[in-house]
Design a binder for these strands. Structure first.
Lengths: 239, 239
DNA sequence: GTACTTATGTCCGTCAACGTACAGTGGTTA
DNA sequence: TAACCACTGTACGTTGACGGACATAAGTAC
């Protein structure tokens, strides 16, 4: 038996919702609903891509993968954003990889079409540039957090950022995956996650995480989370 | 006695050199040469600024300063770039601070004037967006480098990035300052710098660093330096 | 030249995270 | 039901950087 895909509409992506003008309706027809299954690689470093993605229920992780195989998450993109900013900025490719961190659905559109609208320098242009700045804030904070904060704080930040981009408080995530996103040992994640569980903040079950006390996480997390969230709210108030 | 400021012209900034069209000449007259002395703070988090800066001989460091006073460098801007991208992206302010890391000169122009030209979506617009992407690459690499690489590698990267933005191989820099840029202990910098000096790569003298074997640094440095450099060259080939 | 400030060199105990390894256990498949 | 695999829990020694402290040396001011 096959399960019918859930019914989504483009406006569930916050950026698309913010476009909603005449210029947008011209290309809205070209949006295409796609499944974004866990682990799918959407962009690979140095490769120029044909589509940009507006996630709805999926979360995409921007990772830098080093020569020795170690990786580090730079930012996450969910329904508040767009995957493919470099395509609009004119650079085509990036040095990072985009991987689906939490499976779901999204819309995609041919790069050229969005680029054409972007280059008219109307609402779409302005919204996307503000989003670009929000993304830069996230990168900034990742860099600073990597330097100074403990694994526990970083995990809290990661959980909250993910939660903000999901409809539920449940994540499908193994500790192995989280570790590779954060660029730390799996055993380190186990330790810290156990601590959070004993404190009653989360519940763990083989690849399922449930956040049971969001407030508690917000108390434990470092400032980085709030800085990013505040900046997204400021730059993209519609969301 | 007063020393006359060196004679600079705007084209010494690589971005301005790339503009050189009719649209640019309209506002070129409004450029103003300014001294950028070591330590001067050009942008403060959350404050909207009146000018954007095109460095010529100075280097500006983008720092995120945490609540507890610890800081981390996110990126550096020199004659290859522009300080004030967030002003153009529409967000006005950022969460980071911009500090002159190496004293020198630069040109500045009122934000509004550049913004107007930017919004015409011509050459200036395109060049600045490509620069924005280069800056994002630098942030990405900083985040990844902070996570995985040793202090020694990071210092090498920092020296090389600085060197690329200076006319000489000499830096005016105390270890204390470098430490606060990298977000590490001063004693840590001393150790590593001593090691580099004994290896004959640099020469130290109370606030003066001279790189005597650039090649040696490039061998020791992590991949992060090359990734950033390559991306700048690719995105802004005129430089 | 002397006193003073500022930068650098070095040491020590501490600690978070590392790499590695292995045992348990939940869920799936045969 | 049994076998198996993938995920999780835990342990151990190692290590790079930390916080803090103090000594030395290089410039600067008097």
């Amino acid at each position: 038996m096959t399960i019918a895909p859930p019914i989504f509409h483009p406006g569930q992506n916050d950026l698309i919702a913010a476009f909603n003008g005449k210029e947008w309706s011209q290309i809205a027809d070209h949006l295409e609903l796609v499944a974004l299954p866990l682990g799918e690689v959407l962009y690979e470093p140095g490769i120029s891509m044909r589509y940009v993605y507006f996630p709805i229920s999926a979360i995409i992780s921007l990772l830098y993968v080093m020569e020795d195989g170690y990786s580090a998450e730079i930012a996450v993109v969910g329904k508040e954003g767009l995957l493919g900013i470099p395509l609009l900025l004119g650079g085509e490719s990036t040095s990072s990889r985009a991987v689906v961190q939490s499976g779901g659905y999204g819309f995609r559109i041919k790069t050229e079409l969005l680029k054409n609208e972007f280059n008219r320098c109307g609402v779409i242009h302005d919204v996307l540039l503000r989003y670009t700045q929000a993304l830069m804030t996230q990168m900034t904070q990742t860099a600073a957090c990597n330097r100074h904060h403990s694994l526990e704080q970083q995990l809290c930040r990661w959980l909250l950022l993910s939660l903000d981009r999901l409809p539920t408080n449940k994540l499908l995530m193994t500790q192995e995956l989280i570790a590779s996103m954060l660029g730390v040992r799996r055993a380190g994640v186990t330790e810290v996650a156990g601590k959070l569980q004993r404190a009653g903040l989360i519940k763990y079950r083989r690849g399922h995480i449930e956040v049971t006390d969001r407030n508690g996480l917000e108390i434990k997390v470092c400032e980085c989370y709030a800085v990013v969230k505040k900046e997204y709210d400021r730059l993209l108030p519609s969301t």
